[in-house]
Design a protein around this nucleic acid. Structure first.
Lengths: 236, 236
DNA sequence: TTCCCCTCTTGATAATCATCAATTGGATTT
DNA sequence: AAATCCAATTGATGATTATCAAGAGGGGAA
């Protein structure tokens, strides 16, 4: 993990700062506030497989993914890891921790692909928050949304069998809601998806095999085509 | 479900309003703000088994449990219910929804025991929030804490086998952290606990049986005694 | 008290899933 | 192109857990 050289970093910020403004955590900021905040910002480059932070480290920063993909996970007592979230580009993470003093990261963060990140100081952002009630409301909305996301994750993990979990996962990946034969790419490696669903990679593979056999979906590598939307929905 | 008669309700508010101030969502309010907020407050009495609201109803209020116990759950596609949270007295629930316009309750709320509740208008509380940045920060801290609670729930559901889940649950119930033989009461019926852990009541029963056989714990009805703390911890 | 209802328990069986092992396939490096 | 590495697949097996069924216990109502 490394920081870019200063001139490169500034160039990088200039380009991607605009992108940042589109994110709801920063869109409510005035230009001057944004400038202030960006002064404390670092640009980080994290190589594939590298760690950004470890579980139980003190949380002083939160992050925005410019490019790549980060994996947030907890290490379970038996040593295996449980993936909590896969954070794609243009999303923030670990911003929920700044409101409790002396907070530790409850997860570890590792780069799934080589990634570029903005890092923000919790203290700086808190200062902005105190002077801008509107920003607080935005952030409250953000956390509230995350809470509901976790809720549906808990629901998935409570589904009776693994097939239901896989089907539910596939359903959430369908963005093109109109098409009769929706298509999409799996965002990450299959073993990571299996991890998120708390099933073994082998089980995931077998379930996909069965769904293909039944003509419900097709899958070649990461390319997924839903062949029978109703049948897929009816698994639930 | 019913409201109390006006004079009874006022009496009730007077007594329990103080209790309310101890809750962190209300402790940061000025006296005058508190008075304003309480004007829109209703006192509700919900009989055992009665519903307060259903999943997908529009969320206009949040609640504080004065006495009793509320169950928040989602109905899964197969018709079974997944318990998301059991809310004991002196706690609030459904307050995270007010920050997103036109929000629906993502869960249903039912009384486990006959319960008495304060109901608060989301709009009124939002008004207070906009005028009090401090209050926003308190609330942000609250949501952040809830987010972490969900995280550990997700972790529990990801634990390899049911024994681990039960053991983990028992560990969290130990409050008397010093005692060599900690004792506590199960807060709700065993089938509800099983539901929270996403296992069948039968499985829960069998696991407890085994733990008793091994001399790790004792359980008579809802009374639990931990006999071998180390052994219990080592299951994890 | 007796009855009734519901929870909890216990047993038997079937379904589901994890694990171990071996192989295939794809991508990257040398 | 060959070698290498890791992900993905497939098969065989055993462990775990759900399901179905029946009985035991406990608290409230008549």
């Amino acid at each position: 993990m490394g920081m870019l050289k200063k001139e490169d970093a500034m160039q990088f910020q200039k380009i991607h700062g605009q992108l940042l403004r589109k994110h709801h955590l920063f869109s409510a900021l005035s230009d001057s506030d944004m400038t202030t905040l960006m002064r404390g910002t670092r640009v980080l480059s994290v190589g594939k497989g590298e760690f950004l932070f470890q579980q139980n480290e003190e949380a002083r920063h939160f992050y925005f993914v410019v490019s790549g993909c980060m994996k947030l996970f907890r290490t379970l007592p038996d040593g295996t890891e449980k993936i909590i979230e896969l954070v794609p580009s243009n999303q923030t993470f670990a911003e929920a921790l700044m409101f409790n003093a002396q907070m530790m990261y409850p997860v570890s963060a590792q780069a799934v692909d080589s990634s570029e990140l903005f890092s923000f100081s919790n203290i700086d952002y808190m200062t902005l928050l105190k002077s801008s009630p509107d920003l607080s409301l935005v952030l409250l909305g953000d956390l509230s949304r995350r809470l509901r996301m976790r809720l549906s994750e808990i629901e998935v993990l409570s589904l009776k069998n693994s097939t239901h979990r896989v089907v539910r996962y596939l359903m959430t990946q369908i963005v093109d809601s109109d098409s009769e034969y929706p298509q999409f790419d799996l965002p990450v490696a299959k073993r990571l998806i299996a991890g998120q669903l708390a099933i073994q990679p082998e089980t995931f593979s077998r379930i996909v095999h069965r769904l293909k056999e039944e003509g419900v979906i097709d899958m070649k590598g990461k390319e997924v085509t839903v062949l029978d939307r109703k049948a897929l929905a009816n698994y639930e």
